[in-house]
Amino acid sequence: MSLFQSFPRAIRSGGAALAVTVLVGVLGFVIFYPSQAPTASVPVAQPSTGPSSITFSQHATAPAITYHNPSKTLVPEGRTLFVENCASCHGVNAAGSSRAPNLQGLGAATIDFWVYTGRMPLADPTVQAIEGHPRFTRQQTLAIAAYVVSRAPGGPAIPDVNLGVASLSEGQSLFSTNCAACHTITGVGDALANNVYAPSLYGVGSTQIAEAMRTGPGNMPRFGPGTLSNFQVASIAKYVLYLQKPQDPGGLSLGHVGPVTEGFVGILLGLGGLMLFGFWIGGRAAR
Protein backbone atom coordinates (compact mmCIF):
# COMPACT_ATOMS: atom_id res chain seq x y z
CA MET A 1 0.00 0.00 0.00
CA SER A 2 1.56 3.26 -1.08
CA LEU A 3 1.79 6.29 1.14
CA PHE A 4 -0.82 8.11 -0.95
CA GLN A 5 -3.28 5.29 -0.62
CA SER A 6 -2.75 5.12 3.12
CA PHE A 7 -4.31 8.56 3.47
CA PRO A 8 -8.03 8.53 4.02
CA ARG A 9 -10.07 8.94 0.90
CA ALA A 10 -11.44 12.27 2.00
CA ILE A 11 -7.97 13.78 2.28
CA ARG A 12 -7.04 12.30 -1.07
CA SER A 13 -10.17 13.85 -2.59
CA GLY A 14 -9.44 17.19 -1.00
CA GLY A 15 -5.84 17.14 -2.17
CA ALA A 16 -6.77 16.16 -5.69
CA ALA A 17 -9.45 18.86 -5.70
CA LEU A 18 -6.92 21.47 -4.68
CA ALA A 19 -4.56 20.36 -7.42
CA VAL A 20 -7.32 20.48 -10.05
CA THR A 21 -8.45 23.89 -8.83
CA VAL A 22 -5.01 25.40 -8.96
CA LEU A 23 -4.46 23.96 -12.42
CA VAL A 24 -7.78 25.26 -13.72
CA GLY A 25 -7.24 28.63 -12.11
CA VAL A 26 -3.79 29.03 -13.61
CA LEU A 27 -5.01 27.89 -17.00
CA GLY A 28 -7.95 30.27 -16.88
CA PHE A 29 -5.77 33.16 -15.85
CA VAL A 30 -3.17 32.50 -18.50
CA ILE A 31 -5.71 32.23 -21.27
CA PHE A 32 -7.77 35.09 -20.01
CA TYR A 33 -4.96 37.49 -19.24
CA PRO A 34 -4.06 38.71 -22.75
CA SER A 35 -7.58 39.90 -23.34
CA GLN A 36 -7.19 42.25 -20.38
CA ALA A 37 -4.88 44.47 -22.32
CA PRO A 38 -6.77 47.67 -23.00
CA THR A 39 -4.48 48.39 -25.93
CA ALA A 40 -6.15 45.78 -28.14
CA SER A 41 -6.76 47.59 -31.36
CA VAL A 42 -10.16 48.02 -32.87
CA PRO A 43 -10.25 46.58 -36.35
CA VAL A 44 -10.66 49.43 -38.76
CA ALA A 45 -11.30 48.73 -42.40
CA GLN A 46 -8.76 51.30 -43.53
CA PRO A 47 -6.13 51.64 -40.81
CA SER A 48 -4.39 54.50 -42.61
CA THR A 49 -7.13 56.92 -41.65
CA GLY A 50 -5.98 57.21 -38.06
CA PRO A 51 -8.05 57.07 -34.87
CA SER A 52 -11.67 56.14 -35.13
CA SER A 53 -12.86 58.99 -32.91
CA ILE A 54 -13.68 61.06 -35.90
CA THR A 55 -15.33 64.41 -35.54
CA PHE A 56 -18.45 65.20 -37.48
CA SER A 57 -16.74 67.93 -39.49
CA GLN A 58 -14.73 65.39 -41.42
CA HIS A 59 -17.60 64.12 -43.49
CA ALA A 60 -17.94 67.54 -44.96
CA THR A 61 -14.43 67.45 -46.35
CA ALA A 62 -14.57 64.10 -48.18
CA PRO A 63 -17.70 62.37 -49.47
CA ALA A 64 -18.59 59.36 -47.35
CA ILE A 65 -20.22 57.59 -50.29
CA THR A 66 -19.78 58.12 -54.00
CA TYR A 67 -22.44 56.67 -56.29
CA HIS A 68 -21.70 55.60 -59.81
CA ASN A 69 -23.66 53.81 -62.49
CA PRO A 70 -21.92 51.01 -64.40
CA SER A 71 -20.46 51.95 -67.74
CA LYS A 72 -22.87 52.07 -70.68
CA THR A 73 -20.42 50.00 -72.69
CA LEU A 74 -21.53 46.98 -70.64
CA VAL A 75 -25.14 47.22 -71.82
CA PRO A 76 -24.86 44.72 -74.73
CA GLU A 77 -23.27 42.09 -72.49
CA GLY A 78 -25.84 42.85 -69.80
CA ARG A 79 -28.69 42.49 -72.26
CA THR A 80 -27.49 39.00 -73.21
CA LEU A 81 -27.13 37.94 -69.59
CA PHE A 82 -30.48 39.43 -68.66
CA VAL A 83 -32.33 37.69 -71.45
CA GLU A 84 -30.69 34.40 -70.60
CA ASN A 85 -31.12 34.49 -66.84
CA CYS A 86 -33.69 37.06 -65.78
CA ALA A 87 -36.15 37.76 -68.58
CA SER A 88 -38.20 34.60 -68.12
CA CYS A 89 -39.68 36.16 -64.98
CA HIS A 90 -38.89 39.88 -65.15
CA GLY A 91 -39.56 40.23 -68.88
CA VAL A 92 -37.15 41.24 -71.63
CA ASN A 93 -37.49 44.94 -70.82
CA ALA A 94 -37.30 44.30 -67.04
CA ALA A 95 -40.87 45.55 -66.78
CA GLY A 96 -41.99 42.58 -64.64
CA SER A 97 -44.62 39.93 -65.10
CA SER A 98 -47.13 38.04 -63.02
CA ARG A 99 -44.21 36.11 -61.52
CA ALA A 100 -41.78 38.89 -60.73
CA PRO A 101 -41.75 42.65 -60.07
CA ASN A 102 -40.97 45.50 -62.42
CA LEU A 103 -37.28 46.43 -62.16
CA GLN A 104 -37.43 49.65 -64.14
CA GLY A 105 -36.35 52.66 -62.16
CA LEU A 106 -35.07 50.67 -59.19
CA GLY A 107 -31.50 51.65 -59.94
CA ALA A 108 -28.22 49.85 -60.32
CA ALA A 109 -27.82 49.44 -56.55
CA THR A 110 -30.91 47.23 -56.35
CA ILE A 111 -29.76 44.96 -59.17
CA ASP A 112 -26.23 44.76 -57.81
CA PHE A 113 -27.44 43.86 -54.31
CA TRP A 114 -29.79 41.08 -55.39
CA VAL A 115 -27.46 39.54 -57.94
CA TYR A 116 -24.12 39.99 -56.22
CA THR A 117 -25.30 38.54 -52.87
CA GLY A 118 -26.43 35.42 -54.78
CA ARG A 119 -30.10 36.00 -54.05
CA MET A 120 -30.92 36.25 -57.77
CA PRO A 121 -31.62 34.25 -59.83
CA LEU A 122 -34.12 32.91 -57.38
CA ALA A 123 -34.40 29.19 -56.72
CA ASP A 124 -37.79 29.22 -54.99
CA PRO A 125 -40.02 32.28 -55.42
CA THR A 126 -42.31 31.21 -52.55
CA VAL A 127 -39.75 31.75 -49.77
CA GLN A 128 -37.44 34.57 -48.79
CA ALA A 129 -34.44 34.81 -51.13
CA ILE A 130 -31.39 33.24 -49.57
CA GLU A 131 -27.97 34.80 -49.85
CA GLY A 132 -25.32 32.58 -51.34
CA HIS A 133 -22.47 32.38 -53.79
CA PRO A 134 -23.06 34.85 -56.63
CA ARG A 135 -23.86 33.21 -59.93
CA PHE A 136 -22.17 36.00 -61.90
CA THR A 137 -18.80 37.68 -61.79
CA ARG A 138 -18.47 41.26 -60.66
CA GLN A 139 -18.36 42.51 -64.24
CA GLN A 140 -21.34 40.37 -65.30
CA THR A 141 -23.29 41.74 -62.35
CA LEU A 142 -22.45 45.31 -63.34
CA ALA A 143 -23.42 44.51 -66.91
CA ILE A 144 -26.86 43.29 -65.86
CA ALA A 145 -27.26 46.44 -63.75
CA ALA A 146 -26.16 48.58 -66.70
CA TYR A 147 -28.75 46.93 -68.90
CA VAL A 148 -31.59 47.50 -66.42
CA VAL A 149 -30.54 51.13 -65.93
CA SER A 150 -30.51 51.54 -69.72
CA ARG A 151 -34.18 50.51 -69.85
CA ALA A 152 -35.26 53.27 -67.48
CA PRO A 153 -33.15 55.74 -65.55
CA GLY A 154 -33.57 56.55 -61.87
CA GLY A 155 -33.01 54.85 -58.56
CA PRO A 156 -29.82 54.74 -56.53
CA ALA A 157 -26.56 54.01 -58.29
CA ILE A 158 -23.97 51.64 -56.90
CA PRO A 159 -22.44 53.12 -53.71
CA ASP A 160 -18.74 53.14 -53.01
CA VAL A 161 -18.32 53.60 -49.26
CA ASN A 162 -15.38 55.60 -47.95
CA LEU A 163 -14.97 53.94 -44.55
CA GLY A 164 -12.11 56.26 -43.70
CA VAL A 165 -14.36 59.23 -43.06
CA ALA A 166 -17.08 57.20 -41.30
CA SER A 167 -17.48 57.15 -37.52
CA LEU A 168 -17.56 53.83 -35.70
CA SER A 169 -19.31 55.29 -32.66
CA GLU A 170 -21.94 57.05 -34.79
CA GLY A 171 -22.39 53.76 -36.59
CA GLN A 172 -22.93 51.89 -33.31
CA SER A 173 -25.55 54.36 -32.18
CA LEU A 174 -27.40 54.34 -35.52
CA PHE A 175 -27.14 50.57 -35.81
CA SER A 176 -28.70 50.03 -32.40
CA THR A 177 -31.49 52.47 -33.28
CA ASN A 178 -32.30 51.33 -36.82
CA CYS A 179 -30.97 47.82 -37.42
CA ALA A 180 -30.78 45.89 -34.15
CA ALA A 181 -34.53 45.49 -33.85
CA CYS A 182 -34.37 42.85 -36.63
CA HIS A 183 -30.74 41.93 -37.23
CA THR A 184 -30.07 41.82 -33.43
CA ILE A 185 -27.57 44.06 -31.72
CA THR A 186 -24.69 41.72 -32.57
CA GLY A 187 -25.73 41.32 -36.21
CA VAL A 188 -26.23 37.56 -36.14
CA GLY A 189 -29.72 37.92 -37.58
CA ASP A 190 -32.87 36.20 -36.39
CA ALA A 191 -36.19 34.69 -37.39
CA LEU A 192 -38.89 37.36 -37.57
CA ALA A 193 -42.24 35.89 -38.56
CA ASN A 194 -43.69 33.18 -40.73
CA ASN A 195 -40.69 32.18 -42.86
CA VAL A 196 -39.38 35.71 -42.75
CA TYR A 197 -36.02 36.34 -41.24
CA ALA A 198 -33.39 39.02 -40.89
CA PRO A 199 -30.21 37.56 -42.34
CA SER A 200 -26.91 37.49 -40.57
CA LEU A 201 -24.72 40.48 -41.37
CA TYR A 202 -21.53 38.49 -41.16
CA GLY A 203 -19.75 38.11 -44.45
CA VAL A 204 -21.17 41.08 -46.34
CA GLY A 205 -19.16 43.95 -47.75
CA SER A 206 -19.61 47.69 -47.31
CA THR A 207 -21.14 48.13 -50.77
CA GLN A 208 -23.84 45.53 -50.12
CA ILE A 209 -24.57 47.04 -46.69
CA ALA A 210 -25.03 50.49 -48.21
CA GLU A 211 -27.08 49.08 -51.09
CA ALA A 212 -29.40 47.27 -48.70
CA MET A 213 -29.98 50.44 -46.70
CA ARG A 214 -30.53 52.61 -49.78
CA THR A 215 -32.81 50.17 -51.64
CA GLY A 216 -34.63 48.22 -48.89
CA PRO A 217 -34.59 44.68 -50.26
CA GLY A 218 -37.45 42.34 -49.38
CA ASN A 219 -39.02 43.16 -46.04
CA MET A 220 -36.27 45.52 -45.02
CA PRO A 221 -37.26 49.19 -44.87
CA ARG A 222 -35.58 51.55 -47.29
CA PHE A 223 -33.37 54.17 -45.67
CA GLY A 224 -33.27 56.92 -48.29
CA PRO A 225 -31.19 60.11 -48.27
CA GLY A 226 -33.92 61.89 -46.32
CA THR A 227 -33.64 59.36 -43.50
CA LEU A 228 -29.92 58.69 -43.29
CA SER A 229 -27.15 60.85 -44.73
CA ASN A 230 -24.31 59.29 -46.70
CA PHE A 231 -22.10 59.77 -43.67
CA GLN A 232 -24.57 57.90 -41.50
CA VAL A 233 -24.90 55.05 -43.98
CA ALA A 234 -21.12 54.79 -44.20
CA SER A 235 -20.86 54.80 -40.40
CA ILE A 236 -23.39 51.99 -40.07
CA ALA A 237 -21.48 50.03 -42.73
CA LYS A 238 -18.29 50.60 -40.76
CA TYR A 239 -19.89 49.31 -37.56
CA VAL A 240 -21.36 46.26 -39.33
CA LEU A 241 -17.90 45.42 -40.65
CA TYR A 242 -16.58 45.89 -37.11
CA LEU A 243 -19.22 43.47 -35.78
CA GLN A 244 -17.87 40.82 -38.13
CA LYS A 245 -14.64 40.83 -36.14
CA PRO A 246 -15.32 42.75 -32.94
CA GLN A 247 -13.12 43.41 -29.97
CA ASP A 248 -14.24 40.41 -28.02
CA PRO A 249 -12.46 39.70 -24.73
CA GLY A 250 -13.65 37.24 -22.11
CA GLY A 251 -12.86 33.92 -23.73
CA LEU A 252 -14.88 31.74 -26.07
CA SER A 253 -17.79 33.75 -27.44
CA LEU A 254 -20.95 31.72 -27.59
CA GLY A 255 -22.19 32.83 -30.98
CA HIS A 256 -23.27 36.30 -29.79
CA VAL A 257 -26.87 35.17 -29.50
CA GLY A 258 -27.23 36.24 -25.88
CA PRO A 259 -28.33 34.28 -22.84
CA VAL A 260 -29.68 31.23 -24.70
CA THR A 261 -26.29 29.65 -25.32
CA GLU A 262 -25.02 31.02 -22.01
CA GLY A 263 -27.81 29.19 -20.22
CA PHE A 264 -26.97 25.92 -21.91
CA VAL A 265 -23.29 26.25 -21.08
CA GLY A 266 -24.07 27.24 -17.49
CA ILE A 267 -26.41 24.31 -16.95
CA LEU A 268 -24.66 21.59 -18.94
CA LEU A 269 -21.01 22.51 -18.51
CA GLY A 270 -21.18 24.39 -15.21
CA LEU A 271 -23.69 22.44 -13.18
CA GLY A 272 -23.22 19.24 -15.19
CA GLY A 273 -19.47 19.29 -14.67
CA LEU A 274 -19.87 19.97 -10.98
CA MET A 275 -22.36 17.12 -10.68
CA LEU A 276 -19.76 14.79 -12.16
CA PHE A 277 -17.31 15.95 -9.51
CA GLY A 278 -20.04 15.44 -6.93
CA PHE A 279 -20.53 11.92 -8.21
CA TRP A 280 -16.80 11.37 -7.85
CA ILE A 281 -16.83 12.57 -4.25
CA GLY A 282 -20.22 11.45 -3.03
CA GLY A 283 -20.56 8.19 -4.88
CA ARG A 284 -23.66 6.09 -4.92
CA ALA A 285 -25.61 4.65 -2.06
CA ALA A 286 -24.35 1.41 -0.57
CA ARG A 287 -26.55 -1.58 -1.11
Partner: peptide, 18 residues
Amino acid sequence: GFFFITAGVLAALGGLVQ
Protein backbone atom coordinates in the same frame (compact mmCIF):
# COMPACT_ATOMS: atom_id res chain seq x y z
CA GLY B 1 -12.45 20.01 -1.49
CA PHE B 2 -15.77 20.34 -3.28
CA PHE B 3 -15.84 24.06 -2.54
CA PHE B 4 -12.49 24.42 -4.27
CA ILE B 5 -13.71 22.34 -7.20
CA THR B 6 -16.81 24.54 -7.52
CA ALA B 7 -14.74 27.70 -7.33
CA GLY B 8 -12.33 26.19 -9.86
CA VAL B 9 -15.05 25.30 -12.36
CA LEU B 10 -16.61 28.75 -12.02
CA ALA B 11 -13.22 30.42 -12.41
CA ALA B 12 -12.57 28.31 -15.50
CA LEU B 13 -15.92 29.34 -16.98
CA GLY B 14 -15.29 32.96 -16.04
CA GLY B 15 -11.87 32.93 -17.65
CA LEU B 16 -12.55 30.78 -20.69
CA VAL B 17 -16.14 31.37 -21.75
CA GLN B 18 -17.57 34.79 -22.49
